[in-house]
Design a protein around this nucleic acid. Sequence first.
DNA 1: AGGTAAGTGGGGATAAGTGGGGAAAAATAG
DNA 2: CTATTTTTCCCCACTTATCCCCACTTACCT
Lengths: 143, 143
Amino acid sequence: MFIGEYQHTVDEKGRLAIPVKFRRQLVKGAVVTRGLDSCLFVYTREEWKKLAERLSALPFSQANSRAFARLMLAGAMDVDIDAQGRVVLPEYLRRYAGIAKETVVAGLYNRLEIWDTAAWEKYKTETEKNSTDIAEKLGELGV
Amino acid sequence: MFIGEYQHTVDEKGRLAIPVKFRRQLVKGAVVTRGLDSCLFVYTREEWKKLAERLSALPFSQANSRAFARLMLAGAMDVDIDAQGRVVLPEYLRRYAGIAKETVVAGLYNRLEIWDTAAWEKYKTETEKNSTDIAEKLGELGV
DNA sequence: AGGTAAGTGGGGATAAGTGGGGAAAAATAG
DNA sequence: CTATTTTTCCCCACTTATCCCCACTTACCT
């Protein structure tokens, strides 16, 4: 399980070091996808497979199912960890998440999230302001 | 399993390089056909066989299911990958998908899609606008 | 303070992507 | 049926990107 928040940098070749605490779980490969709120999600291959099978089961005769599958499946990328513990983030995913250099890698239980540091800070201050509202909504979910 | 998005070019002879990550699954040959939303679908021979059987089973009484089956079945073309990892896209399919030079090859689990790059970008920006619907769908799928 | 491991940067080998020429095959015309 | 043209396929060559390795710096642990 992935826990914690780390500050890393993407180099000119688009490589990002995976924090050591996460590596062992990802040595068999990882899948990076477009996430929500302009960040990237990283799943283990097994986790991804479960999700992808549900996505691919959507009927391609429906326009919004196609759009959805295209965004999630075509947006995903199979990556391997190199000897230095890094993955290459394809250009289109970096562009999607506004990732240039400074990034945050955060563990969210069954996935990682990769954020541009500035976007992460912005998101955090915004949600902290609304944290009481959010807390109330969570109550509805039984947390 | 095909995932990811790749930028490739079609040359003057109508040849398109298949991304390396997809080749191994297509060495036994592929079937290219007219897809939905002005792109081309590419299947492995086995996948195509399954799909073609389902298409031919569509009720002949309904005009739109006939049209749909004709579009895909009649437009289908058996292609082989050459020594450089390329396939030749017949002229009528390139014309159908508006493919001139710059193309996107996208993996959608059990098929590939080939798009004119400009059309792909346009489609994506349009669907990303509806991202709230997408977020809801993700919730339904348990992401 | 020293040793070890993590994170980062960069160079070189290798493979992928692309373009073009020429041979073989097919199609068309005489 | 032959000759000519056109198309298809195979091969070679170049450019660009990717991968692998090495090395340095920084942080952490003992």
